[in-house]
Amino acid sequence: MLRAGDPGDASAGAFQAGLNNREGTSSMPASLKNDYLSAPDDELVGWAQKGDTEAFEQLVFRHRDKIYARAMMMMRNEQEALDLSQEAWVKSWQRLHQFQGDSSFATWMTRIVINLCLDQIRRQKKMRAESFEQIEEDLGGVERQMAVEHVNPTEGLEKDELRKRIDEAMAKLTEAHRTVLVMHEFQGLEYKEIAKRVDISIGTVMSRLFYARRRMASLLQGLRRERSE
C-alpha cells in the first residue's frame, strides 16, 4: 500500500501531517484502528475529518467505482472521467470538514463529481446556449409523437446486460440531454436544483428531460426489436 511518504512522493503539509498523526498519536482506540474494512462510512468519515488518511483511503476504495461511473456517464470519455473522479476525491479531502452527514457520504461525493463534470463541460463550451429554438429542439419532434411503450422492452434481459444496454442508449443522447437525465434519475435532483446547477431555466430542464426520456424509450424499443429478430 503506497503512503504519502513513499519515495518520489511530493507530499507535505496537512495530508502528510494527517498521515503522521494516524501512525503516531491518534486518539482512536487500537481495536478500531485496524478495523477500517468493517467500519461504516460515517465512522470512517469521522476519523478522516480528524486527519486519518487511512480511513479516507478506505472511503476511496469503497466508492471509487461509483464515482468514476458517474463521471463516465456524464463525460463519456474514460480519461476525463478518471481525471475528474480523482479530482473529486482531492476536493472531498479538502472539504471533508464541511460534510455534516445531512446525506450519505456517497451522495455527497457524487454531488462533488457531478459539479466537477458540469464545470468541465462549461469549460469545454459543450453546453449550447439556451434559446426558444433550443427549447423546441430539446422537446424533440419524432420522440414527442412516438407511440407510448406498453411492454417492457428489456424483459428477459439479465441485470448486467440491461445496465449495459441502458449505458449504450445514454451514450446516444446529446450531452445536454444526458446531463439532466443523470442529474434527475441518478442524482435524484429536483427540476429547480438542476436548473440552478446547469444554469438553465426550469422550462429548459423539463423539455430536455422529457426529450431524453422519450429518446431513451425509443432506443430501448429498438433494443427489443433487435432481440426479437
Partner: peptide
Amino acid sequence: EPLGTVPETREFYWSQIQRRIA
C-alpha cells in the same frame, strides 16, 4: 444505473490521489 470500474489498480489510483492532494 450503469456501473463502471476504475480502469486502474487500486494502489495506483490511490497514489495518484495522494500526489494530487500533496
